[in-house]
């Protein structure tokens, strides 16, 4: 229970940071998806089900922090965590590689969900503007996820699944 409270607080703080200092985190003006990075970084240490629940909570918090379509980020995060959790964890010596791979998959799934749902919902009919913001954010998120992976490798000195 305590572990979930800590995770909730961390997600809350990350959303707070995302809202607070967007211009300080990225020179390009695109904010990395800190919540997704945290969810992916937690995945190797927990089951996929736990990852999906954490993704749902984090996504719902993100939805609640802005007056947009409620539930869309929750759905995207759940599916992203499910996809990333399906990746084999024991085949990589360094966590950095796994985290980057997982964030590539999870980010792609998330962008796909956003695109499909928003087009289906009619909130954004045009695909190009959606990708124009989504793709740079996707790559910025991958970049920051790589940095997090390097940090985790530096701290633990162990491979994924060991």
């Amino acid at each position: 229970m305590m572990q979930w409270i800590v995770k909730f607080l961390i997600l809350f703080i990350l959303i707070w940071i995302e809202r607070l200092i967007p211009s300080h985190l990225s020179n390009t003006g695109f904010i990395p998806d800190l919540v997704l990075i945290a969810l992916i970084a937690w995945l190797p240490r927990q089951t996929r089900a736990h990852g999906m629940v954490a993704g749902f909570v984090g996504g719902l918090l993100q939805d609640l922090s802005s007056p947009g379509l409620l539930g869309i980020t929750a759905l995207a995060k759940v599916l992203a965590c499910a996809a990333a959790g399906s990746l084999p964890k024991g085949r990589f010596r360094h966590q950095t590689i796994w985290i980057i791979l997982a964030i590539v998959v999870a980010g792609a799934v998330q962008q796909l969900v956003f695109t499909i749902v928003l087009r289906g919902y009619g909130a954004s009919g045009a695909l190009i503007p959606l990708l124009r913001y989504g793709l740079p954010q996707y790559f910025v998120t991958i970049f920051y996820a790589g940095l997090v992976g390097i940090f985790i490798d530096y701290r633990s000195g162990s491979g994924v699944g060991n």
Partner: peptide
């Protein structure tokens, strides 16, 4: 089960 439940809640909220 978790996937269906969480995704279902998200879809319901949407």
């Amino acid at each position: 089960a978790v996937l269906f439940i969480t995704a279902g809640i998200a879809l319901f909220l949407m």
